[in-house]
């Protein structure tokens, strides 16, 4: 049996079940709204989950030996990398695919085909792990760069009047150019 053909035939069933399970990792209210709202701008989490999982599934159908090349799977990981998931929680969705393929298409695929799919999913998992780490590292770089940009904000500067008091009554007014360094 041709793997590609079977996976393509089962695409709607597997993908819908997969999307439902992944959206189920959010709160009941979150899952409900993220599932029902179809406007991609009013529902960025739902949109990114849908688009990311679709891209991964289509990559699996097309070639079980090639990496996922699109942007959508990266976006999906990028979203989950900043939500309140542990790393394993953020990425464990990929392994659901193995179970879903068995459930929906197990009868039509032989052992070798299932093994081939499992290996593809494992490889994709590692790829998603790379994405996840890239996102976390990017996040820390963003944080670091912001601190550098905001270094002026991190101040414990004293008030000008105290500065003047400390210099005694002979000090120049605070607005003048020679009022001295920041207190």
């Amino acid at each position: 049996m041709n793997i590609e053909k079977v996976l393509d035939q089962k695409k709607t069933d597997i993908l819908n079940a997969w999307i439902k399970q992944v959206l189920g990792t959010y709160s009941a209210d979150g899952a409900r709204i993220f599932s029902n709202e179809r406007d991609r701008f009013a529902n960025p989490v739902g949109h990114n989950v849908r688009a990311g999982l679709t891209e991964i599934y289509e990559a699996l159908v097309a070639d079980q030996t090639a990496p996922v090349t699109g942007e959508a799977s990266f976006k999906l990981v990028q979203v989950r990398a900043v939500q309140e998931f542990s790393p394993s929680e953020a990425l464990s969705f990929i392994f659901l695919l193995k179970e879903l393929v068995r459930r929906e298409a197990g009868a039509e695929l032989d052992h070798a085909a299932l093994e081939r799919i499992d290996r593809a999913v494992d490889r994709m998992a590692l790829q998603l792990f790379d994405h996840y780490m890239a996102c976390r590292e990017r996040l820390f770089r963003v944080r670091l760069e912001e601190i550098e940009r905001n270094r002026f904000l991190v101040t414990d500067g004293g008030c000008p009047s105290r500065f003047l008091r400390n210099r005694g009554n002979t000090a120049t007014p605070a607005g003048s150019a020679d009022a001295g360094p920041d207190a």
Partner: peptide, 27 residues
């Protein structure tokens, strides 16, 4: 074949109770 349930994930991937293992607050 049975549905993929969160307990399957619990055993295979995430050991601790978590969102993926069905710990989404339901109360």
């Amino acid at each position: 074949m049975a549905d993929t349930k969160v307990d399957v994930m619990k055993e295979k991937v995430v050991k601790e109770p978590s969102l993926m293992t069905g710990a989404v607050p339901t109360q």
